[in-house]
Amino acid sequence: MTKYMILIYGDDQQWQAMTAEQRKAHAAAHDAFTAKAGAAILGGEELEPATVATSLRSDASDRVTITDGPFLETKEVVGGFYLLEAADIDEVTALASLLPEVHHGHSGVEIRPVVDHG
């Protein structure tokens, strides 16, 4: 079995502008995903808006700079993640296709295998 990270990207402003009804439908879609994925889910969380992020980078002299917000100015930000264990990428893509972010024009998901160092 391989571990996969599903990164959920989208437009923070679109997520913040959702009505109560839209939020309820969005949560129900995530509930359906978690029910279908079951024990394959090893973890996952929704993240606070990118505006409360803190970014760290170092320069050529290894001096660390701390910046409020995401490092890059971008319309799409990481809004959450799931960590799954699955037999192969086909299984993960089938599950991830259930996520509501895949079906909205302002968002999407990225799936990446986790490196096994062991």
Rank of each mutant, 00 (worst) to 15 (best):
D90V: 08
A37Y: 08
A96T: 02
Y82E: 06
E76M: 05
I8A: 06
A40C: 14
E110K: 02
E45M: 12
I66F: 06
E73N: 11
D11W: 06
K75W: 04
H26D: 13
Y82K: 01
V102M: 06
H117S: 08
L47Y: 14
I8V: 15
S55A: 06
L95I: 03
L84E: 00
I89Y: 05
S55K: 07
A86G: 07
P113H: 01
L99R: 02
H103E: 06
L42F: 11
V78M: 11
S58D: 14
A37W: 06
A20H: 12
E21H: 07
A28N: 11
K3I: 05
V78K: 09
G69T: 02
L95T: 02
I89H: 06
L7A: 13
D11C: 10
S97M: 15
K75N: 07
L95R: 00
G79H: 04
G108Q: 02
V52I: 09
D62H: 15
I89L: 12
L72G: 10
D116R: 04
F33G: 00
A27L: 15
T93Y: 07
E73L: 07
F33P: 01
T34N: 15
D31C: 09
A37V: 05
R23Y: 14
A53L: 10
V64E: 01
A60K: 14
L7K: 10
H104P: 03
V114G: 02
T2N: 14
V102N: 04
G108E: 00
H106P: 01
A28E: 14
R57F: 05
S107V: 04
K36M: 11
T67L: 03
H26M: 14
A27N: 12
E45T: 09
D62M: 13
L99K: 04
A40L: 15
W15T: 05
A60L: 11
V102P: 01
